[in-house]
């Protein structure tokens, strides 16, 4: 595998190798000098067609801690927004000598297009493509959950998976690349995933996914999940009749104070709360829940750097990750 495009096609062994490597990177991040020489002389381009400061600085920190040269290319507002094509941009980056391109793009499949055409030969990391996937987000979520799960078991997290963990993902699944990447990855790692959403915000075809689907958040909480992952919801969705009002959405699918308190009533001392950020407090999550000891939000951010270091390291340190290079990502000729 030369690229990280999705978790849908990520094997359990590859996922665990990334998470284990991220543990090693995390140890670096705990040191006073947070720097490794591993990617010295390599060039990583952050190619962002969407504003996402959080993700961009996470990748930037990851690449710099591996001593790579980093170029930030905010395509929004540049020649690209004046009509330059993705192909031309990619070929420009190829000419510059990019070794890896981290791409964030509003179009589903944009990362795969870069990886499977002959526009560019660099390793491609999908940093979020439309409503398709956001694999490094899922990996950092899995990393965070794995640490928590291993701690409860009293074992080191290295080499372990999420077998038996019950994870409930709540919110706008239809438009969420985070939800998709997490469903594939968490189930690959052995977790039991339940999706909770208004039926309008679940894709047609979701019944074929390897997870359970529920409409009632309270019942899902009564099922005693080990983790609850809240997804961001855009208030504008109500204008397209996905739900009647933000108030109704909050009452039925928000993690408000009452539902948060219910976790304690059920004796779920170890149930954690995740959110990919940025949070819309008061809509999908209350401040009480977001700022509680259950919240993993800041740990997720810190772990994000470790996971992205691991991904860049494994993709760019040739050999380490080449053993399962598959025909699935073989170049197709772009005539």
């Amino acid at each position: 595998m030369r690229h990280l495009l999705s978790t849908h096609d990520l094997s359990r062994a590859d996922a665990i190798r990334i998470l284990d490597t991220a543990e090693e990177m995390s140890a670096v991040n705990d040191r006073e000098v947070k720097k490794l020489p591993a990617l010295r002389g390599r060039t990583v381009v952050n190619l962002f067609f969407e504003d996402s400061t959080r993700t961009r600085i996470s990748f930037e920190a990851a690449a710099k801690r591996l001593s790579a040269d980093v170029i930030n290319f905010a395509a929004k507002g540049s020649s690209v927004s004046k009509g330059e094509s993705l192909k031309d941009t990619a070929q420009t980056l190829e000419a510059i000598g990019a070794d890896a391109v981290v791409i964030r793009h509003p179009a589903s499949g944009a990362a795969q297009r870069l990886a499977t055409t002959d526009w560019i030969s660099a390793a491609v990391v999908n940093a979020g493509d439309g409503t398709h996937e956001h694999p490094t987000q899922a990996l950092l979520d899995a990393f965070t959950l794995r640490r928590h799960w291993a701690k409860l078991a009293g074992t080191p997290s290295g080499g372990t998976d999420l077998a038996g963990a019950k994870v409930t993902i709540v919110g706008d699944v239809l438009h969420s690349r985070v939800a998709r990447s997490n469903v594939w990855l968490l189930t690959t790692l052995g977790a039991q995933v339940t999706l909770v959403a208004p039926p309008t915000l679940l894709p047609i075809g979701v019944e074929h996914w390897p997870c359970t689907v529920a409409y009632d958040f309270d019942e899902a909480i009564d099922a005693k999940p080990d983790a609850i992952m809240m997804l961001r919801v855009q208030a504008e969705r109500m204008n397209a009749s996905y739900f009647p009002s933000t108030g109704e959405y909050s009452r039925r699918w928000g993690l408000g104070d009452e539902r948060f308190a219910r976790l304690a009533e059920l004796g779920l001392a170890d149930t954690v709360i995740l959110h990919p950020g940025p949070m819309v407090r008061g809509l999908e999550i209350s401040s009480t829940a977001a700022d509680s000891a259950r919240s993993q939000v800041l740990r997720q951010v810190a772990n994000g750097v470790s996971v992205r270091m691991a991904v860049l390291y494994l993709l760019l340190s040739s050999g380490l990750y080449a053993q399962d290079a598959t025909a699935a990502h073989a170049k197709e000729s772009a005539s």
């Binding site: 589903s108 998709r180 047609i204 075809g205």
Partner: peptide
């Protein structure tokens, strides 16, 4: 709409043409 709405569009995250 970008493609047939169904099992594949759900995975690809492309808006469906039902």
């Amino acid at each position: 709409a970008q493609m047939n709405e169904g099992i594949v569009s759900a995975v690809l995250g492309l808006p469906g043409w039902p």
